[in-house]
Design a protein around this nucleic acid. Structure first.
Lengths: 245, 245
DNA sequence: CAGTGGTCTAGACCACCCC
DNA sequence: GGGTGGTCTAGACCACTGA
């Protein structure tokens, strides 16, 4: 009689709680509505606050909730689709450009992040670093730093944001004929956190782009997108034959 | 004398700890090496175990660490680049195909996930759901479910994996001439967790693809990639000259 | 079996927002 | 000031791994 009846797989409390809350969000809450505070929710479900928070963190990771210190927890709208197609934002100042150039610095080769230096393989000499901020629907969604060897950028005029725009124009003038890009998960560094209106460590999608001209790398950019509010969309990469035909 | 000397911004302990550990990983540890256990690390740095764990979770999110229950915490290798180019894996059984078809089910329209039903807009009637698993370097990296309306798939032969492959061949035969894809952050559902050798809730990159033929959606796939080990790479979607010229 | 990471608790204090 | 979420603690027990 020692037969084990069924394979009892005790589901963690926070996981079950997440499911329960998720269903409650679907059926009983509207977008933007504020939830009861954490202490009350924990009491209501009979768990410690830390356990409740583990469930909320999961839901926030999935983009279902927004939590703001001093304010409360609200139901998040569905993630917005953010276009990351090859040409998007490549032309500063173009109508509908979602990017705002914030500044520009000239870095010595040794001052480059290791990953960037690796992608700009043959590069020697100083490198322009252009910082941009992307805003969508009145909300900051991404920061980017674009690196371009000074030798390729000519003599960008102006200072600050104006100089940054000049570097971007120089890149565009080169007529890059291809890109490599990759997407990975990261956590927002402290310096970017305030710009994106998030706490340090919040999850972000890091999009690394390599701009190619005649087979050589002419620029590299690293953009960090808020993972909670953004769904990255890639234009129709496969439709080239459609257009060409 | 009440002058506040500098603007003291107390950095959270776990954040500082993460920085310290990150530097230690760079300088004192090799890939694959196991770290001291959590209780010892916590004692060594004079923090509670929960605080230490918060720092470790950050580092794991960034792909720097691997943690396995019953085993320990090890230094992770750099993330592998996983190709997500439009045609990759579209041909089951092709040489070098990283995907293994696991099975196939026929779903009633009402049984579809809401997000999938929305993308398969005009679809009526049952839908094939093909499940695949992607392995890279001997390690499972992604699971995928591909949805294709039965009306478009003909009469796929066989059962299980064989039937799934037949559906994929039918899709390939249609000659889809374009794709939409998007990437967002998610957490691995319980059923996929074991397949990917992760615990439920682990972060994943969800790649949603819409296959188009003559402007109509002929299939939709949702693939979940392990965010800790994968860096998604997109081939040269380029062709900026198409638009710039 | 001993050792690891994973879960959970009950409580405290802090930083921030808004009134 | 009062309320929110964010950080931190010290402890307990559980699930899993591998010798």
């Amino acid at each position: 009689m020692g037969t084990t009846p069924v394979e009892t797989v005790p589901e963690p409390k926070y996981w079950h709680l997440k499911t329960v809350l998720s269903e409650a969000l679907d059926s009983e809450f509207a977008v933007g509505q504020v939830l009861p505070n954490e202490r009350e929710l924990a009491a209501r479900y009979g768990v410690a606050r830390a356990t409740l928070r583990q469930a909320l963190e999961q839901l926030e990771l999935e983009g279902r909730l927004h939590r703001r210190r001093g304010v409360g927890t609200t139901v998040a709208p569905p993630r917005m689709g953010v276009d990351v197609a090859p040409e998007a934002g490549a032309r500063p100042g173009a109508p509908g450009d979602a990017w705002r150039t914030e500044g520009c610095a000239l870095l010595a080769p040794g001052a480059l992040p290791a990953a960037v230096a690796r992608l700009l393989d043959g590069a020697e000499g100083p490198v322009h670093a252009v910082r941009r901020l992307r805003t969508e629907l009145g909300q900051p969604v991404a920061t980017e730093v674009l690196y371009m060897p000074a030798a390729l950028a000519g003599e960008p005029a102006g200072t600050g944001a104006a100089r940054g725009s000049a570097v971007l124009r120089a890149l565009h003038r080169l007529g890059p004929d291809g890109q490599d890009r990759s997407v990975e998960l990261g956590s927002v560094p402290a310096e970017d956190a305030r710009r994106l209106d998030r706490l340090p460590g919040a999850p972000v999608l890091v999009v690394t782009t390599r701009y190619l001209a005649r087979g050589a790398t002419v620029a590299v950019s690293a953009a960090t997108y808020r993972a909670d509010t953004c769904r990255l969309t890639f234009g129709d990469c496969g439709a080239m034959d459609l257009l060409a035909g």
